[in-house]
Simulated assay, not measured.
Amino acid sequence: MVAQIIDGKALAARLRDQVRTEVEHFKRSTGRPIGLATVLVGDDPASEVYVNSKRKLSRETGIQDHHRRLPANATQEQVAQTLDELANDPAVSGILLQLPLPAHLDAKALIDRIPWNKDVDGLTTTSAGRLARNIEGLIPCTPAGVMSLLEDEGVQLQGAHAVVVGRSDLVGKPLAQLLLQKNATVTIAHSKTKDLAATTHQAQILIAAAGVPHLIGAEHIAPGTVVIDVGIHRTPEGLIGDVDFNAAQGKASRITPVPGGVGPMTIAELLRNTLKAAWLQS
């Protein structure tokens, strides 16, 4: 068996085309533009690359770019003031505070200053609560991207056993909730799980989001499993994921590559969240 590759780049391109069309519809219907504010604190090279990519693709879909950059030594009060200004700006539909922040800043407190209906990363306490209660809101982008990939592939979720390896607030926990909402049976494992292979071997759908390079090998995967790799790590040999792709290809039925799998979907879902936020505010 050689696994079928799930092409996240192709689906992300289709979703961005849809967003572009719907942004134009929003403008015609409301007479208002849509704006995304990205806030970058410091000079982390990886964060700068991510933010620039988000800004470029948002402009290409007709979303206005409201970028704010603050120095690495910005105080908690200075970052909070910037977020408050954006929250009160009617031209800003969505606010994204790029993580990680410099160590002296309280990221959770700053994220919670973002109004839930502008929280396009879906990370505020209110957004998390709305997701937990299955109330309409803005869903974290990477879990939303994973769900879109599974839906586009026609993967049966109802009654399926999904194992999520990873328990972060950003991916693992919200993804488990989204899978439960689709009536999957969900197990959450992580890097400290005893006999991880025994747990993951039960999965029909295996999602690796622990942030550990090549944590998942062939011994973790039952034949025919759908494998989604959320991890991304820079190595001298290039980008790799949480899954040993070469080893997994002989066991999985379908698998996302790194790069080109979940990564492009995260930005596509950010743009969809920005559009949704604009409608929520209108």
Rank of each mutant, 00 (worst) to 15 (best):
G122P: 05
I63W: 09
A184Y: 03
P100W: 02
A218K: 14
G94C: 03
T200Q: 06
V262F: 09
D84A: 11
H233P: 11
A198D: 13
L149K: 02
A3Q: 09
R234I: 12
Q158L: 07
A208Y: 08
A72Q: 13
L36H: 08
I205N: 09
V243C: 02
H233Y: 07
V230W: 04
P264W: 08
I267P: 02
E85M: 05
T193I: 13
P71L: 07
S53E: 13
T200M: 11
A218S: 14
S47L: 00
P143N: 06
P45H: 04
T225L: 05
H25W: 01
S148A: 15
Q156L: 14
R272F: 01
K194W: 00
I232Q: 10
L131Q: 07
N273H: 12
A248S: 10
P264E: 09
H25R: 15
Q98E: 12
H66W: 14
I216F: 02
G129R: 10
T256D: 08
S282P: 00
L101K: 04
Y50T: 09
G250D: 10
V230D: 09
A198R: 14
I5H: 00
I221W: 06
T266N: 06
T199I: 15
Q249K: 14
V39P: 05
V258W: 12
A210C: 04
P264G: 08
D121F: 06
V258M: 12
E22P: 01
S53W: 09
